[in-house]
Nucleic acid binder design. Structure first.
Lengths: 196, 196
DNA sequence: CACATCTTGAACTGATTGGTTCAAGATAGG
DNA sequence: CCTATCTTGAACCAATCAGTTCAAGATGTG
């Protein structure tokens, strides 16, 4: 079988992304990637690059895909900040609830592995986390929070969001995850109420 | 050199623990452990067991050591819950601030790697996280929180505490980490105030 | 001094790692 | 039908992995 592309690049990249997402960089071998994508070993190198390059592409793919969703969730921040932040967390909660996808978060996992990742991969992971904070800071300022509160809440919400990755990996139930974000949402609600 | 023990077991275990803590299970080879402990390869197997056994010992060691500190921090929960929770977070923040120790948290890192860890190691990691929640739940109930609030805050505080591991790995500053826990502490303070 | 005890370094096994190469074969366009 | 193009599987490489074994040597005790 040959002549034309035998596989769909997007599907293959998704499969590789999910493999990295589930097992992490260190615990994913090129053979694992071959099995996950259904692609031949040599096809991976010729079409997707070496392990490092491919991981970078998957990380960026992940950040772009869910970054868009987070952006969309926060788009109503100016008119209804509380709903926006709830929607922000929902992006994560729904992703975790999806049985097709691994638990956790590729960015969180990569951040955790930074001391043993290549500099460029580490930089991309940091960048993805930093972008998340920027997103949140902008949304919180667009809401009715003071600059100081917006900064603090941006750090907090980003951190709580990442904590869902750890907790879901450890087998936390949807109810437990909801309790985690609930306290944060209540705190935000309270902060908004006192400033009315 | 021989005849009597040439190395201090406690020092060696600490060195191994720190190596796992920094690089994680998958990214730590037995040679790394040999280098970190200063022990010979064969000494590791004869004195500390194989990689899996040693990792388990390090994980338990870590959980016991910091578990005690968390317990001590929460001991004043009944009389002053807010101070207790602040002290709880301080255990983590001080550990992160210690330049002798890696950033992050061995338990958080192990939890994140659960899908690729051996069942027994995964169980210990889950157990450590579960114990943390029990600790917190007991403390929050001993304070003046309702059962419902205590449950939710226990999940939340445990999660935020773990999030510090991710954020510190990604290079968050002490001020950023403080902002993260600040929102939680404020929320707890608020919850206590409304119930007075 | 001599013995028993323990550590050490080094060698070794078999499996797996990331990475590369290439002949064989299947296909599409001419 | 023929040819140029591409994928495929398999083999190969050097390096590293976890794990084991053992002779050599150093030590404290008797």
């Amino acid at each position: 079988m040959a002549g034309k592309k035998q596989f769909d690049m997007e599907t293959a990249l998704d499969a590789a992304m999910i493999q990295f997402w589930r097992a992490g960089y260190a615990d994913t071998s090129v053979d694992d990637l071959s099995r996950a994508t259904g692609l031949n070993r040599s096809s991976i190198y010729s079409s997707l690059g070496d392990k490092d390059t491919l991981f970078l592409r998957c990380l960026d793919r992940y950040a772009a895909r869910y970054g868009e969703k987070y952006d969309a969730a926060l788009s109503c921040a100016a008119s209804d900040l509380l709903t926006a932040v709830r929607a922000f967390f929902d992006v994560t909660l729904e992703r975790i609830a999806d049985p097709e996808l691994p638990d956790g978060c590729l960015v969180a996992q990569s951040a955790m592995a930074i001391p043993v990742l290549s500099p460029s991969v580490a930089a991309h992971a940091k960048e993805a986390l930093g972008f998340q904070r920027l997103r949140l800071r902008a949304a919180l300022k667009a809401g009715r929070l003071t600059d100081q509160d917006a900064e603090a809440f941006a750090e907090h919400v980003a951190a709580v969001n990442q904590s869902l990755a750890i907790m879901s990996r450890a087998g936390a139930s949807p109810a437990q995850l909801l309790a985690i974000v609930g306290v944060t949402v209540d705190a935000l609600s309270q902060a908004l109420r006192t400033r009315e």
